[in-house]
Simulated scan of single mutants.
Amino acid sequence: MTADPLLDRALVEEATKKSGLVWVQGEDSPARALWHVWHEDAAHLVGDGPGEQPLPGLVDGGVAEVTVRSKDKGGRVVAWTARVSELAPGSEPWEAAVAELKGKRLNASDAEGITDRWASQCRVVRLTPLDGVAELPEGSLAAAPLATGATTRQPVPGGLPKLLFKRKRR
């Protein structure tokens, strides 16, 4: 992107820190929007467990493409390539990452026991930027939404328009 790798590194770090959501494309998988925290010069993710985000294609020792969006406008700011490493539960890097992730995890049903659940049922993944790989995004990356069981197509209930557009009496 620029001739100075330190500026590239600073752009990647600042953009990723400020964005609560990044698009990550692992090996042989589509890009997914994932929440993360920036800690010790890398993005950290937790997932692949009950109630957590899926992390397909993020294998230990692999590479992933990360696209960072602007927090206020939602547009792409920078894209970078990362080395994927899975942190071993209970290790010092795992404990440090989980302490940061726990503080940013919204809507956890079991906030007190979340670290135990993550240790036994989930994966904590570290995405470390590779040097000299930051680039300003160009072109559209628009894609059809991934299939999910969370959406259904059903007709609108008959009484709903009357309820929505009913005039208030004075």
Rank of each mutant, 00 (worst) to 15 (best):
Q121I: 06
V22G: 01
R153N: 11
R76D: 10
G57T: 05
W94G: 05
L141I: 13
E138T: 11
F165T: 12
L7V: 08
L130V: 13
L163N: 08
A108M: 04
E14Q: 15
V46P: 01
A33M: 14
L55E: 02
G26I: 07
A15E: 02
K104G: 01
P56C: 10
V22C: 09
L136Y: 10
H39S: 01
V77M: 07
S29K: 04
A147F: 06
W94E: 06
Q53E: 14
K73T: 15
V12N: 00
L87N: 02
A119K: 12
V24L: 01
E92A: 13
L55Y: 05
P30T: 04
K166Y: 14
E65S: 13
L163M: 12
G159P: 00
P161H: 13
L130R: 14
R169P: 00
S140Y: 03
R76E: 12
V37M: 11
W80N: 00
A15S: 14
V24D: 01
P161D: 10
V84Q: 09
P161R: 12
T81C: 03
G57F: 01
K168Q: 14
L45C: 08
V124Q: 05
D116T: 14
I114W: 03
K162F: 04
K18F: 11
E40F: 00
G103H: 08
A31F: 03
I114F: 00
D28H: 15
L21A: 09
G159V: 07
E100N: 02
I114L: 09
V78G: 05
V124W: 05
A31K: 05
G26F: 05
S140M: 02
G61L: 01
A82K: 09
D110V: 06
M1D: 08
N107S: 09
H44V: 11
A10P: 02
R167G: 15
L146F: 04
P157S: 06
R123E: 07
S29H: 12
W38T: 13
K168R: 15
G90L: 06
V133R: 03
A150Q: 13
V68H: 03
E13V: 10
R117W: 07
E52Q: 10
Q154Y: 04
R170D: 10
A134H: 11
A79L: 11
L55F: 02
W80V: 00
L21H: 07
A64G: 11
G90W: 03
G158N: 12
L130W: 11
S85P: 02
G47Y: 03
W35R: 10
W80C: 01
S19G: 10
T152E: 08
